[in-house]
């Protein structure tokens, strides 16, 4: 869906030709290409409205981020406990799939990139956000008392990490937990500014 300036919601694209199931995460890069992931993998929606599948076979595809030069897409694979990277071609095609960081016990959900080239990832079961560099070295850990679903470097100069956190008792209890309104928005100063997309 797309929100128009007058506030109305209109259908922006219909992805049902690619998958009958719901979709999960989205990132729009500097070229205006939108990458959307879900069960079948990653779909790319171009500014002209055309849509095609550009990658498949993920262990729970989750947060995605694209470097400021539009050249690299990083995706969290929650069940594989790793961040996977692709080269992004000018036409939006993804290639050169590789492990960007093996996270050990980390379970990545939402991610973002900072000016030092590090990635922050939110982690639900471990109730934390972690800053890692390519290869997996941990640079910083921010602990919370509930599951961290996503984090984004935002605020003035994008120098503050905003974290959305909620108590989590598994997918089957998600609707019940939502009624308890345990969700919070947390902020903490970050060592480097957010860059890239989102």
């Amino acid at each position: 869906m797309r929100r128009e300036h007058d506030g109305s919601l209109v259908t922006h694209a219909d992805l049902r030709s690619l998958s009958p199931y719901g979709w999960n995460e989205i990132v729009v890069d500097g070229r205006g290409n939108a990458y959307i992931n879900g069960g079948p993998g990653i779909a790319m929606l171009a500014p002209d409205g055309s849509v095609r599948q550009v990658a498949d076979s993920f262990a729970f595809p989750n947060g995605m981020a694209i470097t400021p030069d539009n050249s690299t897409l990083i995706i969290a694979e929650s069940h594989a406990k790793k961040l996977t990277a692709f080269d992004v071609a000018v036409d939006g095609t993804l290639s050169n799939r590789r492990v960007w960081a093996d996270l050990g016990s980390g379970v990545p959900d939402g991610i973002c990139i900072d000016a030092d080239g590090a990635v922050w990832y939110a982690d639900v079961p471990n109730k934390r956000c972690v800053r890692v560099r390519e290869g997996g070295d941990v640079l910083q850990t921010v602990n919370a008392d509930r599951g961290c679903f996503a984090c984004m470097l935002s605020g003035p100069h994008r120098r503050t990490l905003f974290i959305v956190a909620t108590e989590w008792r598994g997918m089957e209890k998600a609707a019940e937990v939502a009624l308890e309104r345990t969700g919070q928005l947390l902020t903490i100063a970050a060592p480097a500014s957010g860059v890239g997309w989102p």
Binding site: A150, V164, R181, G183, A189
Partner: peptide, 25 residues
């Protein structure tokens, strides 16, 4: 740095994005 709680009482926040000087989620 200290963690600050900006909002409480949410059902389940997801997909935060910084846009026009505000966080949208």
């Amino acid at each position: 740095p200290e963690m600050r709680t900006l909002m409480t009482g949410l059902a389940m926040g997801e997909s935060p994005r910084w846009h026009e000087d505000r966080l949208w989620f």
